[in-house]
């Protein structure tokens, strides 16, 4: 069995970090297993953890009263769930549900924020790792709202 450290180091998210920085991140990490239908978090929860998916699939949902939940994205192996931990007031903005058995590494947000505040080069690398993901998702959202497959 691989240790948590090895598993984390193989995750694409960590590829840009130095070994020393990876050590700092590993110090905030723990393993998770979510069964199909289990929620990683709900809208409004404190964003005290984010997740690197190792295997499985996670649906991001928004619920409006009187309507079934709308899934606006699914995330899979190698992808990250949760960015609200970076931005005050650190509250999640949607529900995250495991669609199937999902294994993930959780990173303790308070722990990592503290380390980033102490070590700005770690904080800078963290921003560099997150920003492209956020921009990519923003672009995807733009394409989604265009509803390009609609009739007009």
């Amino acid at each position: 069995m691989k240790g948590l450290e090895d598993i984390l180091r193989e995750h694409p998210f960590l590829s840009g970090f130095s070994p020393e920085q990876s050590d700092l991140i590993v110090g905030c990490a723990r393993n998770h297993r979510f069964n199909a239908g289990q929620y990683l978090f709900h809208e409004g929860d404190p964003a005290d953890e984010f997740f690197l998916i190792r295997r499985g699939k996670v649906a991001l949902e928004i619920v409006a009263p009187g309507k079934p939940p709308i899934v606006f994205a699914t995330l899979g192996e190698g992808e990250i769930v949760g960015a609200s931990w970076l931005v005050a007031p650190h509250r999640t903005m949607f529900d995250a549900r495991a669609v199937e058995l999902t294994r993930a590494i959780g990173i303790d947000a308070a722990c990592l924020r503290g380390k980033c505040d102490e070590d700005h080069s770690l904080g800078y690398e963290m921003m560099k790792a997150f920003l492209p993901i956020l921009v990519q998702r923003l672009n995807a959202t733009r394409l989604q709202i265009l509803d390009v497959y609609g009739r007009a």
């Binding site: 649906a59 079934p68 939940p69 899934v71 994205a73 699914t74 199937e100 989604q144």
Partner: peptide, 23 residues
């Protein structure tokens, strides 16, 4: 296969097709 929008019944991907390319 991915869809732009789905309800919780859909077991497949949700998101835009370009997002499938890096995967």
């Amino acid at each position: 296969v991915t869809v732009d929008h789905a309800d919780a019944e859909w077991r497949g991907n949700v998101g835009v097709v370009p997002a499938l390319i890096p995967r």
